[in-house]
Every structure is written in structure tokens, then in C-alpha cells.
């Protein structure tokens, strides 16, 4: 079975578990997003037809919430916490440094698609501000140097593997 079919099957199972309940839309979107990493129109159309919801409603809901992405993210995902504590402690400078070094804009991916940089809302680790998350791992009390170094390492590692 292709991974595509498997994902679809899992999505179908989740919808069945929720009894194709329209009110479980957000839960189902969560699952679909987890499976696919982002939403495209086909996926949303599929969900809308299975739940018998208007397509515009599904798109409206999915695009309302910040967590959902509508573009395929890069191989590595960096998210910078823009919570108050992180801002007060200078996360902005770190973000600008990442943007400069890797030719990337917040909310977007690098030209080669290897890394994406997202701004997230407070992740609640305020006492360790500023926080940068790289591929799911939180770096607390982050400094510009440490973060750049870590990203270089993550990217470098990728190159070695590719060989």
C-alpha cells in the first residue's frame, strides 16, 4: 500500500471514530494536518465531502487557525516564540539574524526549501526566554550565536546524509 493510501485510510478511520460528526471538524483537521504536514485544496475538498460540509466552510475554518499550514514546509522547521517574555528578551534580533544568514523570511522557506522559519505564539516557556524551536526541540535562553550554530549543524547533517 502506498503511503498516500495509508494516510487516507487513517484519516478515514478518524472520521469514522467521530461518526463523521460535523462538529468534530477541528479534530479531524488536526489529524489530517498531522498526517500530511499541510493542507492542499484536494485534501480539504475530500474532508468537506466526507463530512458533508460546504467546502467554503471547511476552508474558512482551516484558514482561521494559525497552526495550520497551507504550504509544504521545509525539511527543517525553525519556530521562534514571539511571546512577551521572548520579545522583551530580544528574540527579534535572533529572528533577523536567521533571516539574514539563511536568506529566508519569517513565515516562508529558504530558496532551496531546506528550512522554514515560523513565528509562533507563546509556547509558555517564558522563564527560559527567548525560545527557539528547531525541529521540535526547544532551545531555551537562546542566543543568536547558539541558534545559528545549531541551524548550521542541522543543515550540515542533512548534507552528510544525502551523500
Amino acid at each position: 500500500m502506498s503511503s498516500e493510501d495509508r494516510r487516507l485510510q487513517m484519516l478515514e478511520r478518524i472520521m469514522r471514530e467521530h461518526g463523521y460528526d460535523k462538529s468534530a471538524l477541528l479534530e479531524i483537521l488536526h489529524m489530517a494536518h498531522e498526517l500530511y504536514g499541510y493542507f492542499d485544496k484536494n485534501l480539504l475538498n475530500y474532508i468537506s465531502s466526507r463530512l458533508n460540509l460546504p467546502p467554503s466552510h471547511v476552508y474558512g475554518v482551516a484558514s482561521f487557525y494559525n497552526l495550520f499550514k497551507f504550504r509544504r514546509p521545509g525539511e527543517h522547521v525553525i519556530s521562534a516564540c514571539m511571546g512577551t517574555a521572548c520579545y522583551v528578551k530580544g528574540v527579534e534580533e535572533i529572528v533577523s539574524a536567521i533571516e539574514r544568514e539563511f536568506n529566508i523570511k519569517r513565515g516562508g522557506s529558504s530558496p532551496d526549501g531546506r528550512i522554514s522559519l515560523f513565528i509562533t505564539r507563546c509556547i509558555g516557556a517564558c522563564a527560559m526566554a527567548p525560545n527557539i524551536t528547531i525541529d521540535g526541540e526547544v532551545i531555551g535562553r537562546a542566543t543568536k550565536e547558539a541558534v545559528l550554530e545549531r541551524i548550521r549543524k542541522v543543515l550540515g547533517g542533512g548534507v552528510v546524509e544525502a551523500r
Partner: peptide, 25 residues
């Protein structure tokens, strides 16, 4: 358990209702 999806306004009383009902918060 119901999970939010990144919307501050979903913490508002009536926003949370809309969100649990599977709508825009």
C-alpha cells in the same frame, strides 16, 4: 479533550463555543 489550533480569540467564552462546535472561533 478538544484541542485548539492557534487562535487567541478561541479563549473567549463564545469563541470557545464556536471552536468546540467545529467552526471559526
Amino acid at each position: 479533550l478538544r484541542m485548539g489550533a492557534g487562535a487567541f480569540v478561541a479563549g473567549e467564552e463564545t469563541g470557545i463555543l464556536a471552536s468546540i462546535e467545529g467552526r471559526r472561533a
